[in-house]
């Protein structure tokens, strides 16, 4: 066991209210940045109001029904997505302290991501639409392929810190950021985090080739909640890489929360740029890579870290 921390407990309770707004603001910034990149490629003007416009458009839009839809699962799935993203976000240390300092924080985080995974299937299944269902199935098929490397990458960081608590993991990186001793886990984490949020190039479940896939039949508020939930999930999943691998709020001169913001912004920018460099990776091709390359790589990485931990006399 690592020595007891200088107790960076949870943030005050009112942060529970602030957190969703904070995440939504970051997600809106992601949307705006992404759209301005798109506009540049097309040679059109960028529009900073774009997230507001889109949200407004969907708020006044009509909600659709389809024939023989499974409305219960359809609406529930859409609602679960953003809720799961925010619940996953409570363990993120914003600066030094998270909203909830759970002792099993990273496992909680992963469980919430998996809830979102189920939610996408429900949204694809619900409207009784073939293209939606294909989108949902793509995510289910890929989900396991994403989830295993994801889990191993998270566990590697937890192993390095000998704790499942995100604040302990941050504290364990005071000397050396984990990205140095576990680069493979870091890269795999970023890849699979993007994939868990089905963000490009892993956006096959909502791909253009199936007319929006799982989201094909959503309109109005339902679409806003789904699309927003997806962005929230991306932000939260990428943001956890900071405490896991990049030392959390550690850094000179600036306060911890600003360092977290800067590091998260850099990672998000990286994810947005990477999306532009690659076409959508189809489910069957990525599954092969995930099982044959990523899973063994992350296991070897975990083994190496385990040996390092044993070597420095950890684990009692």
């Amino acid at each position: 066991m690592p020595e007891p921390m200088s107790a960076p407990a949870a943030l005050p309770l009112w942060w529970v209210v602030v957190l969703p707004f904070l995440l939504v603001a970051v997600a809106a910034a992601v949307v705006a940045a992404d759209a301005s990149l798109t506009a540049r490629a097309r040679g059109a003007r960028a529009d900073v109001l774009l997230p507001v416009r889109e949200a407004g458009r969907l708020l006044v839009g009509q909600r659709r029904r389809t024939v023989a839809a499974d409305s219960v699962l359809w609406r529930a799935g859409g609602a679960v997505l953003p809720v799961a993203a925010v619940l996953a976000g409570v363990v993120l240390p914003l600066g030094l302290r998270p909203v909830a300092d759970l002792s099993v924080g990273v496992v909680w985080f992963n469980a919430m991501e998996v809830l979102a995974w189920a939610a996408v299937w429900m949204v694809g299944w619900g409207p009784n639409s073939a293209l939606g269902l294909v989108g949902g199935y793509r995510f289910v098929a890929q989900g396991l392929a994403y989830e295993l490397p994801h889990m191993f990458a998270i566990i590697t960081a937890a192993l390095g810190a000998e704790s499942l608590r995100p604040t302990d993991i941050v504290a364990a990186q005071r000397g050396l950021w984990f990205v140095v001793i576990m680069p493979v886990a870091f890269v795999v984490y970023l890849i699979s985090a993007t994939a868990m949020a089905f963000w490009g190039p892993f956006d096959a479940p909502v791909g253009r080739d199936v007319a929006g896939g799982a989201a094909a039949e959503l309109s109005g508020v339902d679409r806003l909640v789904f699309a927003g939930g997806r962005r929230l999930l991306l932000v939260v999943a990428v943001a956890l890489a900071v405490p896991l691998f990049l030392g959390g709020g550690a850094g000179p001169w600036l306060p911890a929360w600003l360092w977290v913001a800067v590091k998260t912004a850099v990672l998000l920018a990286l994810v947005l740029l990477v999306r532009r460099r690659f076409p959508t990776i189809r489910a069957d091709r990525f599954t092969e890579v995930a099982w044959i390359v990523l899973v063994p790589l992350t296991i070897v990485q975990a083994l190496v870290v385990a040996l390092l931990v044993l070597n420095r006399g950890g684990a009692g």
């Binding site: 992963n110 998996v114 809830l115 995974w117 189920a118 299937w121 289910v140 989900g143 396991l144 989830e147």
Partner: peptide
């Protein structure tokens, strides 16, 4: 975690 995966 396990049951969500299992049920899907």
């Amino acid at each position: 975690l396990m049951m969500v995966i299992e049920m899907v």
